[in-house]
Amino acid sequence: MSAASMLSRPVYGTLSPQAGKHHLLVADAEGAAAILDLAKNAPADFFAKAHIIYIPGASGPEYIDALKALNPERFYEGPSFAAALPRLRQTFDAAHMGTRLYIAGSEGLIGQVMQVAAEAGVDHASIQTEQRGSLARRVQCVHCKGITENVTTQPVKCSHCGLLLLVRDHYSRRYAAFQGVCINAEDPTDIPPTEEIFR
């Protein structure tokens, strides 16, 4: 199986303000810069109807003041995606049609927010996304189904079952993960070198 780029690989765009009654913006780390860029083109009343959920991660406090200076209707800063999740779910539950969703940052964050949005009935095609920062991947082991986070190497050892996985470009929105398939199933003694390629 080849790891060449394929059509299930998500294509991310550039955030741009959409017509809408409310705007929910979710970002991690460098994703904040995408929100700041969007702000340059946004109508004057855009952030008065906006809710920003931000997970600074490795970026630390770098972007916090600039995001707050946009004067969003609500601003939340959280330590991790897991910590922000209950708030995100509650926000979707209470939302009406006309609420637009924007996600920026790592591929893992984009995928996981899209998962929650899908549960709330938002079609993936209705969402604005922009990839910024780390290219590390979430990888699902097709054999044991466990997900290994922050994968930067090819191949990678499954953090659950220990099989050596080829990380394919084949991507599942439902799992918000790339597919990992045992790279040496036909000859387990064949151990290819590990290279750091998703950074």
Binding site: V142, H143, A185, E186
Partner: peptide, 10 residues
């Protein structure tokens, strides 16, 4: 299946 590839690949 890919799920069991590591078992039948050989």
């Amino acid at each position: 299946s890919p799920e069991n590839y590591h078992k039948w690949g050989t």
